[in-house]
Amino acid sequence: MNRRRTPRSASAEELLSTLQHLTARARQEVGLHQARVELAQALQGKMLPAALPSFPGIRTAARYAPARDGLDIGGDWYDAFLLPDGALGLAIGDVQGHDVEAAAFMGQIRIAMRAVASTAADPGEVMARTNDLILSMDSSLFATSSFFRLDPATRELAGARAGHVAGVWATADGRSGITSDAGGLPLGIETGQRYPVTRRTLDVDGVFVLLTDGVIEGPSLSIGDGLEEVRRLVSAHTGATAEELADRVLRAAVLTGHEDDAAVLVLCHEVTPRDHG
C-alpha cells in the first residue's frame, strides 16, 4: 500500500527567493510599460503640430488625450496651418485602430491633406484628392475627417466632411447648435468620391469646435448625448479663451467613459479683435 506523502512546507529561504523573483519580474513589466507609454507619447507629439496659427480676431487651440488601452496611442489628429493665399486651413480626423500603424497612417493623411490644400482652394476638392491619394497607398485602414478653410478677410468658413462627427458652434449673443453639414464616405474606402461643401460666415463673436468621437461617445454616453453636452458647455463659455475652451471640452470626455483617444480643435472668432495680452 502506497503511503500518502505530506506536502513539504516551503522554507523561508524558498519563499524569499520566490518573492524576489516576482518582484523583479513586476519591476521589469512596469519598466516596459513605462517605456511603451513614453514611446507612444513621443511619437504622438511628433505627429501633431507643435503650434497653431492665429490672426487678429481669430484664435485656435487644440488638445489630444491618448486611448486607455493598447499602446496608449491612436489615429486621432488635428491640424491648423496657413495656406499660400493667406487663408487658414483646419483639419481633424480619426483613423481606425489604436496602434503604431494607425498613428503612422494618421501622419500620412495629415501631410497629404496639407499638401493638397496648398494647391486646391475648394474643401470638397481637398477631401476628394486626399481620398484618392490615400487609396493609392494601398492601405487597409480608413479614416474619417473634416477639413475647413477660413478666409480671414471675408470671415467665410467653408468645410467638407468625410464620415466624421459633427461640429459644435456657439455665438456670444446666445445662439448655439450642432452642425448638420452633408458629407461623403470616410477617406480610403472608395475612389471617385465627392464631398459637398458647406459655407458659413463668422459675422458675430463666437466659437466653432471640431472634435473626434472619443470626446463624445463611450460606454456612458451616446454620440447624440455627447454632442449635446458639448453644445451646452460651449454655449456657456463663449467668453473663454481658445485654450480654456479646449481644456473644458476635452475634460468633458470623462463623461463618456473615455476608452478611445480624443482630439479637440477650437476656433474662437471676434468681429472686432480685442487685445488678449
Rank of each mutant, 00 (worst) to 15 (best):
N2P: 15
N2W: 08
A10D: 14
E14V: 15
E14K: 06
L15A: 09
L15N: 15
T18C: 07
L19E: 12
Q20F: 06
T23G: 12
R25T: 14
R25D: 14
Q28K: 14
Q34W: 01
V37Q: 04
V37D: 00
Q44G: 01
M47R: 12
P49H: 04
A50V: 14
L52Y: 03
P53A: 02
S54L: 08
F55S: 10
R59H: 13
R59I: 00
R59E: 11
T60F: 02
R63K: 08
Y64H: 05
Y64I: 03
G75Y: 06
W77Y: 10
Y78K: 00
D85H: 11
G86N: 10
L88F: 06
L88I: 02
I92Y: 03
V95H: 07
V100W: 03
E101R: 10
E101I: 01
A102N: 06
A103H: 01
A104S: 05
M106D: 02
I109W: 03
V116A: 02
S118Q: 12
A120V: 13
G124L: 13
E125W: 05
T130G: 08
D132H: 09
I134M: 12
A143R: 10
T144E: 10
S146F: 10
T154E: 11
E156G: 03
A158C: 08
A160T: 04
R161V: 15
A162F: 09
A170R: 01
D173Q: 12
S176E: 06
A182P: 11
G184F: 05
G184L: 01
L185A: 10
L187N: 10
I189D: 03
G192V: 00
R194F: 06
Y195P: 13
P196E: 10
P196S: 09
L202E: 07
D203Y: 00
D205R: 01
L210Q: 02
D213L: 12
E217R: 12
G218H: 09
L227I: 04
E229Y: 09
V230K: 04
V230F: 05
R232I: 01
T238L: 04
T238R: 02
G239D: 08
A246P: 02
R248S: 03
R251T: 13
L255M: 14
G257N: 02
D260T: 01
D261L: 07
V264E: 05
L267P: 00
H269K: 05
P273W: 04
G277M: 08
